[in-house]
Simulated scan of single mutants.
Amino acid sequence: MGGRVAVSQPSRVYVVAVGSNRRGRHGAPRAEVAAALERLGGLASPIFSSAPVGPSSRTFANAVTLVASPLDPPAMLARVKAIERAFGRRTGRRWGARVIDLDLVLWSGGAWSSPGLTIPHPAFRDRGFVLAPLAAVAPAWRDPVTGRRVRHLLARLTRPRRRRMGP
């Protein structure tokens, strides 16, 4: 038996944040997010609603999915950008209305930096619309930079702040 032995490539796990605040070919923003989650596969969070960041006035639908893939980060970025284009995403104004927005937030390989890609996503620690869905599916995932678990990052972001009362 001189057959070949199949060697599987190591699988990496990526956290992909998914957002929409504009109708597209799949329907309303929640339907766009649901369609993107289906296309990406993996373990998806529930879809949350969130207020817009920046000048947009439209409410966002947000979720995350944990995607296992043999792709390295630049190849995974190319995959999510291709999905955005297939959904009708066009480059434009930062924080403007968009049919779909896919961001690589974390991956099982820790930190990654190359031209055009930084993992963990530089702003994810300050974004409840990423942390809340992520806490629903992977609350114990650790931020490779701070060492904090997702549930702790979310708690730090959402806990009420005490106001200092005079000297």
Score class of each variant (00 low, 15 high):
residue 165 M to H: 14
residue 2 G to H: 10
residue 77 L to Y: 05
residue 119 I to N: 01
residue 55 P to M: 06
residue 162 R to V: 15
residue 16 V to A: 11
residue 81 K to W: 07
residue 58 R to H: 05
residue 44 A to G: 11
residue 10 P to S: 09
residue 140 A to T: 13
residue 82 A to G: 12
residue 83 I to E: 07
residue 89 R to C: 15
residue 100 I to Q: 01
residue 73 P to G: 11
residue 160 P to Y: 02
residue 38 E to V: 09
residue 69 S to W: 11
residue 42 G to L: 13
residue 157 L to Q: 05
residue 141 W to D: 04
residue 86 A to D: 12
residue 166 G to A: 15
residue 56 S to A: 11
residue 32 E to K: 01
residue 29 P to H: 06
residue 135 A to P: 01
residue 164 R to H: 14
residue 121 H to M: 10
residue 143 D to Q: 09
residue 41 G to I: 09
residue 125 R to C: 06
residue 131 L to V: 07
residue 136 A to S: 10
residue 110 G to R: 09
residue 106 L to G: 00
residue 142 R to L: 15
residue 109 G to H: 08
residue 34 A to R: 04
residue 106 L to K: 02
residue 31 A to C: 08
residue 84 E to P: 07
residue 23 R to A: 11
residue 57 S to M: 04
residue 159 R to H: 15
residue 166 G to D: 13
residue 106 L to S: 02
residue 71 L to C: 09
residue 128 G to K: 01
residue 57 S to C: 05
residue 44 A to W: 02
residue 25 R to M: 11
residue 44 A to S: 13
residue 56 S to C: 10
residue 13 V to R: 12
residue 60 F to E: 01
residue 141 W to T: 07
residue 148 R to Q: 15
residue 73 P to I: 11
residue 38 E to L: 12
residue 131 L to Y: 00
residue 120 P to M: 07
residue 105 V to L: 12
residue 56 S to F: 04
residue 167 P to G: 13
residue 133 P to I: 04
residue 67 V to M: 13
residue 23 R to G: 01
residue 9 Q to S: 14
residue 151 R to G: 01
residue 33 V to T: 07
residue 39 R to V: 09
residue 105 V to Y: 00
residue 107 W to N: 03
residue 2 G to D: 13
residue 76 M to R: 02
residue 87 F to W: 07
residue 30 R to Y: 01
residue 93 R to M: 15
residue 12 R to E: 09
residue 61 A to P: 00
residue 139 P to Q: 08
residue 99 V to I: 15
residue 61 A to T: 01
residue 56 S to R: 03
residue 138 A to I: 06
residue 77 L to Q: 03
residue 154 L to S: 00
residue 143 D to M: 10
residue 122 P to H: 08
residue 108 S to W: 04
residue 80 V to E: 02
residue 93 R to W: 09
residue 104 L to V: 12
residue 137 V to A: 11
residue 96 G to D: 10
residue 107 W to M: 08
residue 94 R to Y: 10
residue 90 R to M: 14
